[in-house]
């Protein structure tokens, strides 16, 4: 496919916008349709497009499989970590500290930079969506790597 210059140029033009759109979907999930999963799919599709057009080695240079593999794990850890964090922090209630359940974002209430940084439920939702986004992006990319790694087409291209 990389023998078609038009496709290369067009995709180079498109990919940044896809990435931008992915980020928009990621962080705008609170307001409109979208969220971590959809964003992850979109971001991954940008990488996949890059891979399809410029070849597996090229995209693996941008996003090395080792890193992607760790990112898969990282996303889940962020999500579950948020949950653990809420249990560790506990929630403030009537001035005292009471236990907060797993994933109870109310524990994430804080007064630092009030009105600027999200807090409470918003912060929780932001964090977990972020975790989902990372994992989904990484998993989708990894699946692409795996399939492409098995393909003779790609392997020959790599050697050529």
């Amino acid at each position: 496919m990389n023998s078609f210059p038009i496709i290369r140029v067009v995709s180079k033009l498109i990919i940044p916008y896809i990435l931008l759109f992915g980020l928009y979907v990621q962080f705008h999930g609170d307001f409109g349709p979208g969220g971590g999963f959809q964003a992850g799919v979109i971001l991954a599709s940008a990488l996949i497009l890059y891979g399809l057009v410029f070849g597996l080695p090229a995209v693996q240079e941008v996003a090395p499989p080792r890193v992607i593999e760790k990112l898969i794990a990282l996303g889940v850890l962020i999500y579950a970590g948020t949950g653990i964090a809420t249990t560790l922090i506990g929630r403030t209630h009537d001035g005292g500290q009471v236990p907060a359940n797993f994933l109870d974002y109310e524990a994430l209430n804080h007064d630092v930079l009030h009105g600027f940084l999200p807090h409470g439920q918003h912060l929780g939702i932001f964090l977990v969506e972020f975790g989902v986004g990372i994992t989904v992006t990484a998993v989708m990319t990894m699946i692409f790597y795996c399939f492409a790694g098995r393909s003779r087409l790609f392997n020959e291209k790599a050697s050529a």
Partner: peptide
């Protein structure tokens, strides 16, 4: 919840 979440967290840690 810990009974379930502890192995759940350990799984990505293994990969990490």
């Amino acid at each position: 919840v810990l009974t379930i979440v502890v192995p759940l967290i350990a799984a990505p840690l293994c990969v990490l």
